[in-house]
Design a binder for these strands. Structure first.
Lengths: 156, 156
DNA sequence: GTAGATTCTCAACCTAGCTTTAGGTCTAGA
DNA sequence: TCTAGACCTAAAGCTAGGTTGAGAATCTAC
């Protein structure tokens, strides 16, 4: 069993945040000895799940709902399964979006790399046709959705 | 040139949000005809960059700083390059973190899949040793950092 | 047995990033 | 001319997810 300070160091979370989670009902089964919280394996697992679900984009109120399901027993197994399956889809979508974001950033890195080298942005008048092959590849990767949405407006 | 309503549809952003960005100074060079905002290519590009930098985790005040750099000219090329390089690192870190999150979710999907099938969690007494090979693989992937931090505490 | 660290509660406060509201202007069509 | 729709500003309001502060109890070491 651990105190709140130990858990705070274990998870690199402020003590106030852990108390806040407790007050929200996110740490079911938490025990106390003369007022002081005592954290066991179940609460440590709960905090791991909180971190995971938070990063996957779930709000605290929905994490609370999940914790309530856990207290309710076997009748909620399929709700819990569906929740994690849904969060898996959301995480995949987040990763895909970050990869699109990264493509744009890579293009901008190349762009400002050139700008630094030449001391001006004149190398980029008339985008994207003025670009050399490597710059053009980055521009294309950063603008796929743009070209896709342009294609929508032209006849098949 | 586009009106705010057209831009709103183009980016799927509420009109109020676009006005808010303008008020923050995130759309330099924006013109007006008798009070009404007129958006050109520069502002469209600015909005694309705002989306990109926001997704990479930058706060609006730092995006504002970037827009100020763009107004200042060639003397800030290296600041801008360094900004995008830094955001690239952060996006990579975010993706890595989401992949760890996904490993945890995959484990939980397997876990609750089993729980649904068996109608209880008894298959999981004494983790992780009680697990069959496929479950064990998912458990391991979800707990790499845990086992890593355990390893730290044992002599080399 | 006393000092210093850690814990507790409860309520107030904070920040980012919008959104809403109230009241007003501008422009195009019937 | 009248009306509908899109635009404008300024200020207040909202939400999520905490953080901070005051005041008090408790635990730990010397």
């Amino acid at each position: 069993m651990y105190t709140i300070g130990q858990i705070s160091r274990m998870f690199s979370l402020p003590v106030s945040t852990i108390r806040y989670y407790d007050k929200m009902g996110l740490l079911p089964g938490l025990e106390r000895t003369s007022g002081t919280r005592r954290f066991g394996d179940d609460q440590i697992e709960a905090l791991r799940v909180i971190e995971c679900l938070k990063r996957s984009g779930l709000e605290l109120r929905d994490i609370k709902r999940f914790m309530d399901w856990c207290q309710e027993g076997p009748s909620t197994y399929d709700d819990r399964l569906e929740l994690f399956r849904e969060q898996r889809r959301k995480v995949d979508e987040q990763i895909a979006e970050l990869e699109r974001t990264r493509a744009m950033i890579d293009w901008k890195c190349w762009y400002y790399g050139q700008a630094c080298e030449w001391g001006s942005e004149e190398f980029a008048v008339d985008l994207p046709d003025c670009l050399p092959a490597d710059g053009r590849r980055l521009w294309d990767a950063a603008h796929v959705d743009l070209t896709a949405s342009m294609a929508e407006t032209t006849p098949a």
